[in-house]
Amino acid sequence: MPSTTAIKVEHISKSYGSFRAVDDLTFEVYSGEIFAMLGPNGAGKSTTIRMILDILKPDTGTIEILGGRINDATKNRIGYLPEERGLYRSVPVADVMTYLGTLKGLSRVEARKRSLAYLERFDLAAYAKKKVSELSKGMQQKVQLAVTLLHDPDLIIIDEPFSGLDPVNTLLIEEVIKEFRAKGGAIVMSTHQMYQVEYLADRLVMINKGAQALYGRVGEVRARFALPAVIVEGEGDFASIPGVERIETEDGGHGMLLYLQKGVEPDHVLAQMAQRPDIALSRFQLAVPRLTDIFIEVVEQGRNGA
């Protein structure tokens, strides 16, 4: 388990009039991990992020950031990429970056140096003196991510960091985020790209109607929703394997879904198959649902329960 806690949210609630936007939410984010924040639109993710950043105050509950309550010093250790974002349009790119860097406590010289270095890395060096309005949306997005990282924070909160990026730039940003994690930084990432959460994030919280719906390591959460089944591909009579209850074809795939009898371990089934010369196995995997399916299931449940 990672050692230090970057964010500790305990029992926070926030209401707008009679509408309860966040309802008794609790979770922690550790240093050196990518923490995904999931939830349908309007679930309370933005409100939660704003409370973490001290833009809004929770009605009840406490939030600790980087070891204490947020203050001017901790603000300088946080980077924030809001979901809807913009920059001063008529100011040169490097100047905007330098200015926002100095507001995070960097000296002017240092902020400029780092801005130019990031522009270089993000393949935008030629645009340093161009006005922001001359940049494409994807370029502006990269500039904004650079601003988020410029002051070398300990914690970044990034809201939909990949929206509007092409595959090449998506890869670049992923790399940058992973690098930040490798250095021990904490990343809170709000996103709707489930496949990215599956391979990027370490842990997640899913918020539905302001309350915690799922929370834990990504693998654990998925395993919790695993069917009592395995997916196989290959030749042979899979129905004859002991422990297999019934067979269905895989949804949207080429394999077969083998439902197992109660108490039968997938490992056991695999061992049986390996011993059988009449079965040629080319794929064997646990029937762990994709996060998207889990997401939809949780939201549907919430709707039915209401």
Binding site: L53, D54, I55, K75, N76, I78, Y80, P82, E84, R85, G86, L87, Y88, R89, L100, L103, K104, V147
Partner: peptide
Amino acid sequence: SNRLMEILITSV
């Protein structure tokens, strides 16, 4: 309107 406010407000 360009939402820069959110970044500014988390810095100052």
